[in-house]
Nucleic acid binder design. Structure first.
Lengths: 190, 190
DNA sequence: ACCAAGGGAGAACGATCGTTCTCCCTTGCG
DNA sequence: CGCAAGGGAGAACGATCGTTCTCCCTTGGT
């Protein structure tokens, strides 16, 4: 097993364990066991646990946003549909097995006050999500793109939190309906 | 110092420390130091750390919702204003010194997967908040109160998360504007 | 066959933390 | 004044965990 594959297996194990049980609840021994990579190699790939956590968050950030963007471009034909497709994707996510809320919100709550770098990773993820929403809103051609972006952003984050804590998957549909209403209000002449 | 005052001082110290730094980052020694209550008395009042955490969350739940409800009844004269006043109160909260997001979301992210009772406390808090919103919506006299409630609930939670992570206090105003749009859509004939 | 290099398994170390225990002092009552 | 009860300060204990170290085995080159 070469360095690259060891890194991949460690990250896979870290993502599964950290996301399911929380970062502080998972010891390096658990990651060693699940990944099948020895402790020595583990520390060669990631000199400290925090490095592993940051790599886990970084990879998840990229994959999560890619998955969202892929779904939107694959299913939406108009710019309004693109915005609404975000909420359909959220609903799919909420119904996945093992869904436990947003990894970044959870990490932020757990370690944001202890580790500035983990806090930063969470903020960066949310910034990138907002930026993506902003892009979708721009295509609508409204005059107040920033205002609408923040309103949609708020609906998205709210749905994620509510689904994550209360398990209410249907909140994606309620938020989608709210988004549709906001779109109607911001695009009166269609 | 009697038992009652010791309990209050412990809870005050716990709330300040847990909210500011996270639960796992705060040791019992820090709470002892800040409260001025000896370790022995501390364990007489709360036999285990988890008991203290649950008491902290319970008191905060009550106070937080009371503060919100007080502000709403004190400032709103119509039922529409009452709904919008929720977001004004959020804005006040976001601008407070030491604001660090929702204590329940943070605790849930930190210990929700480890302690079912802490997870439950977070869920209960969010349920109570939704129930309060539902009450405000009911007074509007709309036909689809549950749908509107969930839409507002999503906006509220989203604002809390965004303000908590990114420090964007203005998100309360964006969410308020979104709420106003939703109210208009659900109450077309005024 | 021999040796050096590196990797695996897990023990060891040091720090932290929740919880309990020890020791001493105060205090209120006879 | 004597003493029992209780409380304060903090040491002690046991568990956990991140990180390092030790020991042994494999392996590839000569």
């Amino acid at each position: 097993m070469n360095h690259e594959e060891a890194t991949r297996r460690i990250l896979d194990a870290a993502e599964a364990e950290f996301y399911a049980r929380g970062i502080q609840a998972v010891g390096m021994a658990a990651i060693r066991q699940r990944s099948g990579v020895s402790l020595k190699r583990l520390y060669q790939c990631f000199p400290a646990k925090e490095d592993l956590v940051l790599a886990y968050l970084s990879r998840r950030d990229r994959r999560w946003l890619d998955s969202l963007a892929c779904h939107v471009t694959a299913t939406a034909t108009t710019s309004e549909e693109a915005v609404l497709a975000v909420f359909d994707w959220l609903h799919d996510w909420f119904t996945e097995d093992g869904f436990r809320g947003c990894a970044f919100i959870n990490s932020f709550g757990e370690l944001g006050s202890t580790s500035p770098e983990i806090a930063e990773a969470g903020i960066r993820h949310k910034d990138r999500l907002r930026e993506y929403l902003r892009e979708l809103v721009t295509r609508l051609g409204t005059t107040d793109a920033d205002a609408l972006t923040d309103q949609l952003f708020s609906l998205v984050e709210g749905a994620i939190v509510i689904a994550g804590m209360s398990g209410r998957q249907d909140i994606a549909l309620s938020s989608r309906a709210a988004a549709a209403t906001l779109l109607d209000a911001h695009l009166p002449v269609r």
